[in-house]
Design a protein around this nucleic acid. Structure first.
Lengths: 114, 114
DNA sequence: CTTGACGCTACTAAAAATGTAGCGCATGTT
DNA sequence: AACATGCGCTACATTTTTAGTAGCGTCAAG
């Protein structure tokens, strides 16, 4: 079972919400699924699969289970989508895009200097 | 070798910076290490270990290698610490703490209603 | 009554993370 | 000189997680 805030998880016995969150986001595909659902509004299972570099159905299903238990994702009539909570979280993640672009430029700068 | 922006990584053949980032953050302990280094300024290897729920040295070392290659962490005279880039990234992560607290309350609210 | 798309599972193989012990090095103490 | 202490880190065997491939059960349309 996926662990909820207040409960002990693999990486934290305290159950502190931020630790639960960091642990959940630290599983492969979690961030990516949130990212794609935020970008695309809602996606079917198989659409999500292709959006996520053809992640295996096993892994995708596991992550979706996790995310549903965490109250971040739900399965509606039009496929999978973020819940209100999921959407509010993904808003916090948006700045990462711009940050990453700038971050990447520091590597290509290095390359050019050599 | 850990993949840098612009290169193909396990979860993305495009090398788009945001994908590289999401992939890196999606490895266990990555977010936690950044979080702890931001909280504590700098830590020795073994201090980090205890801060991170006694993560195994194997795993911690692997993550630290990754983070150094990504230019987010460096090993200085006073132990491990965030680089400028690492610090700017961790600033973006700070709001997650408050978010997680609010998020957790939605679970305990549910519990109380039952 | 077949076809196609849906969510998803079974099963095996590969990769990642863990646990435990301890190395090699520097610095400090007796 | 001898010993202890703390450092970053490695070796290696085990466990857990993730991946890959095939395909099931359901449902709606043609």
């Amino acid at each position: 079972m996926t662990k909820l805030p207040g409960q002990s998880i693999r990486s934290s016995t305290t159950g502190r919400p931020i630790m639960v969150l960091l642990d959940a986001l630290g599983k492969r595909w979690t961030l990516r699924v949130i990212w794609e659902l935020n970008r695309n509004g809602s996606s079917s299972f198989r659409e999500l699969q292709t959006q996520c570099e053809d992640v295996s159905p096993t892994s995708l299903n596991q992550r979706l289970k996790d995310l549903r238990e965490l109250g971040l994702v739900e399965l509606g009539a039009h496929g999978y989508m973020l819940t209100d909570q999921g959407r509010s979280l993904s808003k916090l993640l948006l700045p990462l895009d711009k940050w990453a672009t700038n971050w990447a430029s520091s590597f290509s700068d290095d390359d050019q200097r050599r």
